[in-house]
Computed example of a mutant assay.
Amino acid sequence: MKKKVIILSLIIIILFTGFLIFKTVFSKNKDETVYEVVKAEKGNFELFVEEEGEVKSNNEISVYTSKALMVSKRYFELGDTVKKGELILTFDPTDKNTALRKVQEKKVTLEQKQRNYRNSSELVKVGGASKTETEDIAYEIKNLQLEIATLESDYRQYEDRIVSPVDGVISEMIADDNYRVNTDSPLFKITNIKDLSVKVDFTDYDAKNIKLGQKAIITSDALPEGETLTGVVTEIASTATKDESYNESKVEIEIKFSNLEIFLKPGNVVNVKVLYLEEVNVIKVPYTAVLDENGRFYVFVVDEKSQIVKKEVTVGSTDNNYYHIKTGISEKETLIKNADANLKNGEKVKTTTEAVKPGKEAKKNNQQGPPMM
């Protein structure tokens, strides 16, 4: 019996000692909890959807020649930037010279026929030639004149050179040195770099936020470091295209550049942010500073006595980094950065501003988002 009493007493002592240790440690940890605080600040609030797109030309010009000439020299390569009027190709003059000789030969023949006609007309007057012979010569002269006109027109179509019709980028180049032209195919294609747009495929989820006229911010590795272009949404496709790879559909959006002082080239890959919400000079707080309790939102304000004041707020938009706070707090109020549902009104807390010493780190509340109650 005594043995049982002793054992029971020992168990009671051990449990009581454990309770005292737990209470001491818990109380100590609670006292040592240090909360990081932030100020409610005013700033601009932007929401956007982001995707990669491709620069496209709205004006691609195909350059042909009507004659199967031989290219003598090509001066630009695929992808080169050219100015209006710059020399792109020259042609071997052999074919053109041959055409010119044909014209000249026919003109010599015409002069001979014209002399024969004059002589025959004089002979008709004295009975030395028949009227029919003279008329036949006149008929030959008319045919020669028509033939010469055709040959001259053909000769004018022989070009010595081809110059760029616009400022642009060569997007396709078929012609090369010693290339015999195929008149059914273009010599080259050139895109007008002053008339470019960006085509972007957004998912249905993102596209639902996009409207005509919205601002776009465009960046690219092809631009000088730090340079940014702006644009405007000008067209939204009326139909979506199924993307079999991801089992989702996408909508093509066209964006026209607002500033093109720095030229991109068709085919350049760009990053596009379409801003669908812009709010200026509004109160912003970190997303983690807001506590959601069944659809009602709260923040924990720290007053000048380091005491907690739990305030209900009206939230606006969020980008999952910050909340726009419409009502409930003022600019410069001090808030607990990571809202803790266990905090109570009037509770005194330690914060980073009053507890952190040089060379030491404060123990921070480790919640990652607004706790759900």
Rank of each mutant, 00 (worst) to 15 (best):
Q104V: 12
T132K: 07
K199S: 09
K125Y: 12
N209T: 04
E60D: 11
K102M: 13
N268D: 15
I88K: 01
S238M: 00
L264Y: 06
K344C: 09
D80T: 09
I61F: 03
K2C: 08
K265A: 11
L223P: 03
A222D: 14
L87T: 14
K194H: 09
K84Y: 02
K194P: 08
K215G: 06
I255D: 06
E293Q: 07
T94A: 10
N345K: 03
S164L: 05
E244C: 02
R115D: 15
Y246P: 11
T183L: 04
L264V: 04
S185I: 13
Y139H: 13
T134K: 03
V55H: 01
E60R: 00
T241M: 06
K142Y: 14
V285F: 07
T203D: 12
L20W: 08
D92Q: 00
K189E: 15
K326L: 12
T234F: 06
E152F: 12
M70A: 15
N116E: 13
I210E: 05
K364T: 15
Y35M: 02
K242C: 08
K348Y: 10
E52V: 02
V200S: 02
T314Q: 03
V38A: 02
S120I: 07
N338M: 10
T353D: 14
E252T: 11
S62L: 10
N58W: 02
S62R: 12
F16N: 14
K28I: 12
K23R: 14
I21N: 06
